[in-house]
Structure formats: structure tokens, C-alpha cells
């Protein structure tokens, strides 16, 4: 029996080896060698160069901001959805997921059209007599784009975990004399914690590594660490440095995830 089970895992194992393990090994090989193929630490240490650190710091800042905004938007929504009952809730959730049926790149291009000079928003404001403005090329535009694209990743785990909270627990707290705030602070928040942790990782990681959003909405004036790595591969043709930097970024993300998961002891909300 156990042998058949192992066989069933075969296709996935193959998939994993071909598309996860081997590429990771290749990144490591490229990252630890120079152009001649000799071993070097240089590509990894390159992360501390000022231009790379600057990009890393900016990525961290924007990813943090994006995660915070997503959390502040999604948490109340999840609360409302829970109060509204499952039927209503799933409808709203579907509306939230609806944009995800469209390609991520197209959605970001749509934002470019919204925010750009001569774009929809700009023209509208101009016609209303408000000064012409364009936020494309600013950090605000990038954070907006990230929040829009990654918000569903925050809503879903939060909604999931909220639905699991037994109403009886809340009622019991109320019976025992807790006021609204106490119910939230002592009961709902701790119980929804796994969802928060999971939502944070699912938003933080992609917004930390994005390069498409910053490319399009940042007018290529803003370099995040994702852009630096992407350009090492595409325009600079320096695969070694690109790999070295990605490894550092991967380790960085692993550490932050480990730190977050430390708080999620039950592992209920984790998606990994």
C-alpha cells in the first residue's frame, strides 16, 4: 500500500525536481561562480553595495506599506463578511476574486492607463477643473498597484479564518460581560491570528520581489531589488550577479517568513 502511495507522489516529485530543485541548484551554481566559472563570494556580497542596498531598503519599505494597507483594508472587510453570513460573504469574496481571472499584467497596464498623464483619472480631474497631475513614477503609484494586485491574497486567508471562528465563542464572551472591544481584542483577534500571519506572508513576499509593477507604474525611475535582479539577466547579461542577488533575497524572505510563522504556532493559517 505504502509503495503505491509513493508511486502516486511520483509525478509531483518529478515536477518538483525538474522545476524547483534543479533551477535552485542552477541559481546556486551561477551565484557562486564568476564568468570564468571560478568559485567566488562576490555575487552574494554584492548585495551590500550602496545601489543594491538602496533598492533593497526601498523594496522593504514599499512591501511593508503595501502589506499594512492590505491588512487595514481586508481585516474590517473580513469582519463584515463574517457578520453577513456565509451566503452573502461568498458572493462578496467572489467579486473580490473576479479581477484575478484577468491576467496580472493586463490589470497593471489598466492601472497605468488610469493614472498616467492623459489617462482616465487625469483627464477626468482636468475636466473637473482640478489641476492636471500624474502620480506615475512615484512610490505612491507602485504601492497602489501592489495593493490592488495583492489584496485578494490578504482577504482570502482572513475570510477563511474568520468563518472558522465559532459564533458560540463570541456569544459566550458577550454573556460573560465582555464589551464589543473586549470581544474583538481578547477573542476575535487572537483567533484570527493565523489568518493574519498567512495573509501577511502572501502579500509581503510578492510585493517584496515584484518588478513588473514597479517597471510599469514607476516609469522605470524607481528601481526595486526585483528590477535590479531582472535587469542583471535581461539587459546586463550578468547571470552570475543576478543569481547571487536572488539567493540573498531568497534567504532574506525565508528569514522573515520564519519569524512570522513563529507566531503562528498552530500552523492553521499557513499556506506553505
Amino acid at each position: 500500500m505504502s509503495k503505491t502511495k509513493r508511486l502516486l507522489a511520483g509525478p509531483y516529485l518529478l515536477w518538483m525536481i525538474a522545476f524547483i530543485i534543479i533551477p535552485l541548484v542552477m541559481i546556486a551554481i551561477y551565484g557562486f561562480t564568476d564568468k570564468t566559472g571560478a568559485f567566488t563570494w562576490e555575487n552574494v556580497i554584492a548585495m551590500v553595495r550602496p545601489e543594491h542596498l538602496k533598492a533593497l531598503w526601498l523594496s522593504l519599505k514599499l512591501a511593508f506599506l503595501c502589506t499594512l494597507v492590505c491588512l487595514l483594508l481586508a481585516y474590517p472587510l473580513a469582519l463584515i463578511l463574517k457578520a453577513g453570513g456565509v451566503k452573502k460573504g461568498s458572493f462578496v469574496v467572489m467579486i473580490f476574486i473576479l479581477p484575478m481571472w484577468m491576467n496580472f499584467l493586463l490589470r497593471t497596464y489598466a492601472w497605468l492607463n488610469l493614472l498616467d498623464d492623459g489617462g482616465i483619472l487625469c483627464t477626468l480631474l482636468e475636466n473637473l477643473g482640478i489641476a492636471r497631475f500624474s502620480i506615475v513614477g512615484t512610490n505612491t503609484a507602485i504601492v497602489l498597484g501592489m495593493v490592488y494586485n495583492f489584496l485578494p491574497f490578504m482577504v482570502l486567508p482572513l475570510y477563511n479564518v474568520m468563518c472558522k471562528i465559532d459564533d458560540n465563542v463570541i456569544n459566550a464572551a458577550k454573556d460573560l460581560g465582555a464589551n464589543g472591544f473586549q470581544v474583538f481584542w481578547r477573542v476575535i483577534l487572537p483567533l484570527s491570528f493565523p489568518g493574519i500571519v498567512s495573509g501577511i506572508t502572501m502579500v509581503f513576499v510578492p510585493s517584496m520581489t515584484t518588478f513588473v509593477i514597479s517597471d510599469l507604474l514607476g516609469a522605470r525611475k524607481i528601481m526595486l531589488i526585483g528590477n535590479i535582479i531582472e535587469q542583471e539577466f535581461s539587459t546586463a547579461a550578468n547571470w552570475n550577479l543576478g543569481s547571487g542577488l536572488s539567493m540573498v533575497l531568497m534567504i532574506f524572505i525565508l528569514i522573515s517568513m520564519a519569524a512570522l510563522n513563529h507566531y503562528d504556532k498552530t500552523g492553521e493559517g499557513t499556506s506553505f
Partner: peptide, 8 residues
């Protein structure tokens, strides 16, 4: 850079 609208 402060004068540049976009790099394209």
C-alpha cells in the same frame, strides 16, 4: 533624474 518624467 529629478527632471525626467520617465525612462523609456
Amino acid at each position: 533624474k529629478r527632471l525626467v518624467k520617465a525612462y523609456a
